[in-house]
Write a protein that binds this DNA or RNA. Structure first.
Lengths: 142, 142
DNA sequence: GGGATTAAGTTAGCAATGCTAACAGAATCG
DNA sequence: CGATTCTGTTAGCATTGCTAACTTAATCCC
């Protein structure tokens, strides 16, 4: 199989898989952007709204809306940064951490059920390739 | 690497890659849902709004909005189905086909640049695994 | 045949996501 | 100290997505 035809398949498969995953996320009743922001905070630790926006590849204004909703729901807190009067530090609350843990577990459980019976070595190769592509995409931004 | 840790990596890598791809799609200036609907019509052929909604995993009402926008832009046409007075047949126009071809080419070009230098065999394995997962996810819906 | 049910498309109304533009306050650079 | 830059905020808009209610057409069943 040529590299190009592999990429055609990869593109279409990823697109449709992500569409299916959205339904798993929707069952959490929390909005996709909000769930995703919680995930960044959970796996990357506390950071500023601007850094969060950059991670999620959305505008600062959009992230501001998302954080306002999350704070209203008591899932994150925004605290002023003492060393820089312009910045804030966004952190998960206890409830926020519990929420993202549950949502992440649901995703992984869905994946595990889907992948049952798939060759473990091939799966590991796929994970390695996708992770490699992910890192290259990150670098390409700068 | 255990299956579970492969899935953790796969989940996170896919999520971030799709986030990056959104920016490529956005450059087409056409809205993600509209672009995605065009892709279904392009690769799957003409079908009814309901079938389109099922493919995209959105409600009929949502797909109706998307199609109204696409028709206003002259990218699709909706024709009555003679054999069933309730149904319609949605088809790409010449401009619609040109639009989705261009957008798809942009995605693939982005992938090719990203994947340059990656082992072709590993890439083929990844494509096969993801395509397998995609098919399983489709079946799981029924 | 005819009423009941089901299916398809539409509409209304709402919420969430996302953008740009414009602004205010704080930090930094010259 | 003035100009610039950075951060967060707000306003206003378009798109995406939902459910509920409705219309019309097809089908089911008695």
């Amino acid at each position: 199989m040529s590299t190009k035809s592999s990429l055609l398949t990869l593109n279409s498969a990823m697109t449709q898989l992500m569409r299916a995953i959205r339904r798993v996320d929707d069952a959490q009743g929390l909005g996709r952007a909000r769930l995703s922001a919680l995930a960044v905070l959970h796996f990357g630790g506390s950071c500023s709204p601007s850094e969060l926006a950059e991670q999620e590849m959305v505008s600062r204004a959009t992230m501001h809306h998302v954080l306002t909703g999350l704070e209203a729901d008591g899932l994150v807190v925004r605290q002023p940064d003492r060393s820089d009067g312009r910045r804030q530090l966004v952190s998960l609350t206890r409830r926020g951490r519990a929420t993202i843990r549950k949502a992440h577990a649901a995703r992984i459980a869905w994946f595990e059920e889907l992948a049952s019976g798939i060759d473990a070595a091939a799966l590991a190769t796929a994970a390695r390739v996708l992770d490699d592509l992910r890192m290259r995409a990150r670098q390409r931004l700068h």
